[in-house]
Design a binder for these strands. Sequence first.
DNA 1: AATGAATGAGATTTCATTCAT
DNA 2: TATGAATGAAATCTCATTCAT
Lengths: 214, 214, 214, 214
Amino acid sequence: MSEDEVLLQQLFEDDKLTEKQKKIILAAIESFSEKGYAATSTSEIAKKAGVAEGTIFRHYKTKKELLVSIVAPLMAKLIGPFIVNDFHKVLDHPYEHVEDFLRAAIQNRSDIIKKMLPVIKIMMQEIPFQPELREQFLEQVARKTFDRILLVIKEYQDKGQLIEMPTLSAARLAISSIFGYLISRYIFFPDSEWDDELEIERTVQFIMHGLSQR
Amino acid sequence: MSEDEVLLQQLFEDDKLTEKQKKIILAAIESFSEKGYAATSTSEIAKKAGVAEGTIFRHYKTKKELLVSIVAPLMAKLIGPFIVNDFHKVLDHPYEHVEDFLRAAIQNRSDIIKKMLPVIKIMMQEIPFQPELREQFLEQVARKTFDRILLVIKEYQDKGQLIEMPTLSAARLAISSIFGYLISRYIFFPDSEWDDELEIERTVQFIMHGLSQR
Amino acid sequence: MSEDEVLLQQLFEDDKLTEKQKKIILAAIESFSEKGYAATSTSEIAKKAGVAEGTIFRHYKTKKELLVSIVAPLMAKLIGPFIVNDFHKVLDHPYEHVEDFLRAAIQNRSDIIKKMLPVIKIMMQEIPFQPELREQFLEQVARKTFDRILLVIKEYQDKGQLIEMPTLSAARLAISSIFGYLISRYIFFPDSEWDDELEIERTVQFIMHGLSQR
Amino acid sequence: MSEDEVLLQQLFEDDKLTEKQKKIILAAIESFSEKGYAATSTSEIAKKAGVAEGTIFRHYKTKKELLVSIVAPLMAKLIGPFIVNDFHKVLDHPYEHVEDFLRAAIQNRSDIIKKMLPVIKIMMQEIPFQPELREQFLEQVARKTFDRILLVIKEYQDKGQLIEMPTLSAARLAISSIFGYLISRYIFFPDSEWDDELEIERTVQFIMHGLSQR
DNA sequence: AATGAATGAGATTTCATTCAT
DNA sequence: TATGAATGAAATCTCATTCAT
């Protein structure tokens, strides 16, 4: 199974896609992430996918629907692991220490980001301009994730492992550090040599010291 | 002097702009930041500026030239304070402690971001797609800024105020925290109530503890 | 038997239509009469008929063939009663007086129009644009009907019941009045309260006085 | 001044039209009336007008707006003469007898129809399908005209010149006859030899006898 | 017979840019 | 300098029709 097919499988698990539909989606992802949604023409996508232009519109009523159909399932994937893995483990106490939780969280996100990079780029680019996406993102991803992050931080604050500070501020600082790593790693300098384990450890330690009881 | 005029003055200090040109630029900034460069039509800008379509092309040969003429001066402004104020002060030792430097750096950036927010949005959106802008950004902003940040970190590491760690990693962690604050403050939740001084202090302390000698 | 089935039976007496074909025809009649032939898409008809797009083209080679297959049988129906009932009766003298003939004629037409209203709308709309239909209409409907009307008028003129005037002019005036009633009744104001018998009588009397010997 | 220019002048009296706009309108009228609105493509209009396709959309935001801009002024023209000439004359009593009024009314409409024939065809074709036009027609043309016709009939009924009968029915019968003549004359058989004066007189007499006191 | 994915020609519409005034 | 009509290339989208299943 090719790398592209893995991506498709991950994003569109259950959906039955025709061969042409798959080609359209892959072509769209490539073009959207390279040139941006607005600057990509449907004729270009059709050509890249080796498909007639009309075929695109048989499957997606509008160009925007194509965009949404690509980005929306990503959002589900992004919260998935949080809900399924991380938090349950935290609340069921398999992570005695914050550090363990942090390491797992970063690692988890890291895997997805690596695979979905182009789609994530599209999502980040288009969220400010597509109200439909923004709303989905805020309601499904941001709120759910954030709520749980706050819970987890509270949990560790109660255990005395984290400094007393408004949970919102603590969350902001921790999340910034994590995303700072991921963005540097996969978006700004994907081509540098990275000792991932070490950098993750540094990030974890940074957060730990920054937020721990002094 | 209206807020818009302040923006123009800050961005186009010495340039002599006709009245129409000012209106065009303000209209373009508004539309570009709301809908994106590619999704904004010149006719829309003309209408918003109260100007004939042709007039835009009298001043800017192409639509892209208009974009560049807006974003390029921002870049100059962004490095300006670094070079002129912060670093000189550091190298001339007016900031004895890292914290003082950090506070000043955040404050400085904060002021500019507040004023230039729409233009910054445009810049961030378009850098990935406009090679011209990307190059300018990397060479003029990123490199220069980064070089100096590294210098400063080294300086404080040598003073023993900062933990031993590759300067690049330290820089990444510090910068992430600062940008995390700025982005949360001005982009994600501009409408929340913010106690700026307190949050800046928290961010500074977070970085300090995260990076200080243990 | 539903109203739709009555319509189909009347239009396609002997033809054997499959279930799908019936649905297609009813859907086409509805859409064509509501939005016009050119503005109706085959996909829309297919959806309304609950049928695959391809199925339409299995039964009708082209969209126009579908139109013709609907309108053509109507034309046969329209001349039918004229030939079969009215005129024979006139020529066989069961209608001693013009008035009786007129009453019967209007009543006859009235029934058909009521049932076939949507198809008649389609016919009237498309005759100007479809040479095929126009020719059929002129040769089969208009000429035959008109010839017989002229005969009948001549008959009553000879009896001295109608004023001397070119039969063509007399025909025009009588036909205008009849169609004026039918159009008002069924197309312009179908929703008003109509005392049909009274209005038909008024129309008959109007024609009688207008055309009778003075 | 060519015949076309007369048409334009009559329809668009005060509007300032560019040369290209005039060509577009004339081409549109020709095509719409020949093939119908829906079956006419804008590219066809552009070609016939000797204009770039974009030019059409510079002046009319949509194809439908072009249609409306052609048909709407016709409606004004159609009621114009009624209001300005006929009725005032009736109510100011220059027409002592119904016949004189009828003759004038037919004559008046006749002139306009002759000139505006293609536009009238378009109007009649599209009124059933364009709610915008239908509404305009009903509110501006039908209602105003009808109200005044009713007034006039009442006036002559009161004078004892017309039979007692619901004014609505009387109106229907009279109008049918008039339109029957106009439609026969200009739409069905424009190419036959017509002795207009005689046929108008016949129509008038027909209505008179049909509706007069017996 | 029936389906519905696929097509490609063409329809409507948009838009950056030009140019005569 | 400013205008805005005009352009034509290209963008999005529609649709009648075909064809493999």
